[in-house]
């Protein structure tokens, strides 16, 4: 399929295709980071993860409307405010859910699957009742749409760049929280040995709540970012949930580096294959490869070493 093109045309296509893979990687990673905390660290199978993302998206929608109505002059920068508000909104809902539901189920991980699935249905209906069944348009400032003209034939989508940068920031932030903060130390202690962590004076219930809420907050940021590239509707969260679990499980639950590598691998594989074959076929082959590798390495690409 590549015959009949000049070298410079091919070069620019490869450059743009490389960026397409990179932006898919950042999307996958952003989706998965929140779940990596909740599922990876805490072992809670959170089926409502997509709905927490959509809460972020709806928060962005409301923020954008408020800015348009009350501070149109600041509209071009509302997105940064929306990121923060989405984090807080999704995090707050996460804390509430942890208190009401999840904390009763820590010893029964499979039940969390059912409970959070039910929660996802409830949240979908809540969104539908508040915002209507139809999708809403999140209006973005003009500077965030369109493409950056690098050369005559290479165009890089600006929203892809924004998602990429946001993902980098969130990843670094998460790394800092996990490995450079007191909460991170406590969290890792609780994950490795809950009774022992409790015995040395860590308030494990509080750590659980903060961690769950933190993971949900990250999901909110992801939802906020995805208003740039996807749809905002009551059930849009369902579009992301499968890929999200795929990335986390494939990477190996509980490791940040695993999640990153897995997001990168899946994104590049899918994006390269999509270029050479049809979209459905690319997805099938990607899934087959992932299943194959998981059969050989059930613990995922990376795993935490624990004394059993």
């Amino acid at each position: 399929m590549l015959s009949g093109y000049t070298a410079s045309e091919l070069l620019s296509i490869f450059a743009m295709q490389g960026f397409a893979g990179l932006s898919l990687f950042s999307v996958f990673l952003l989706m998965a980071l929140g779940l990596a905390v909740i599922f990876g660290q805490m072992g809670v199978i959170n089926m409502a993860h997509g709905e927490f993302m959509i809460l972020g998206a709806y928060t962005t929608y409301v923020t954008s409307n408020l800015f348009q109505a009350y501070a149109p002059g600041l509209f071009p920068i509302y997105f940064f405010v929306a990121v923060a508000v989405s984090f807080i909104a999704a995090g707050a809902l996460g804390a509430l859910v942890e208190w009401a539901v999840i904390r009763h189920l820590y010893s029964r991980p499979l039940d969390t699957l059912l409970a959070t699935w039910g929660l996802s249905l409830i949240l979908q209906q809540v969104y539908r009742s508040i915002f209507g069944a139809k999708e809403v348009t999140v209006i973005l400032p003009d500077w965030m749409m369109g493409a950056l003209q690098v050369t005559d034939s290479i165009e890089i989508p600006i929203n892809g760049l924004i998602v990429l940068v946001l993902t980098l920031i969130v990843t670094v932030f998460m790394w800092a929280v996990m490995f450079r903060s007191r909460l991170g130390v406590q969290l890792r202690a609780v994950v490795l040995n809950r009774p022992m962590a409790g015995a040395v004076g860590i308030n494990t219930a509080l750590v659980d709540r903060i961690t769950f809420s933190f993971g949900c907050g990250i999901a909110g940021i992801a939802g906020c970012a995805f208003t740039m590239i996807g749809s905002t509707g009551p059930t849009a969260g369902q579009l992301y949930i499968v890929d999200t679990f795929l990335v986390v499980v494939f990477g190996g639950a509980g490791t940040l580096i695993g999640t990153i590598c897995s997001a990168f691998g899946i994104a590049q594989a899918q994006s390269v294959m999509e270029f050479f074959m049809s979209g459905s076929m690319a997805k099938v082959i990607t899934l087959l490869i992932v299943v194959g590798i998981l059969m050989i390495r059930p613990q995922g690409l990376f795993s935490v070493k624990v004394r059993k």
């Binding site: 295709q17 397409a20 999307v27 590239i229 996807g230 992301y240 459905s280």
Partner: peptide
């Protein structure tokens, strides 16, 4: 001629095509 699964949200590769 291309088909993407229902709910697919990433079209950058096909746009390059």
């Amino acid at each position: 001629e291309e088909y993407y699964p229902l709910g697919h949200t990433q079209f950058n590769s096909v746009i390059n095509k």
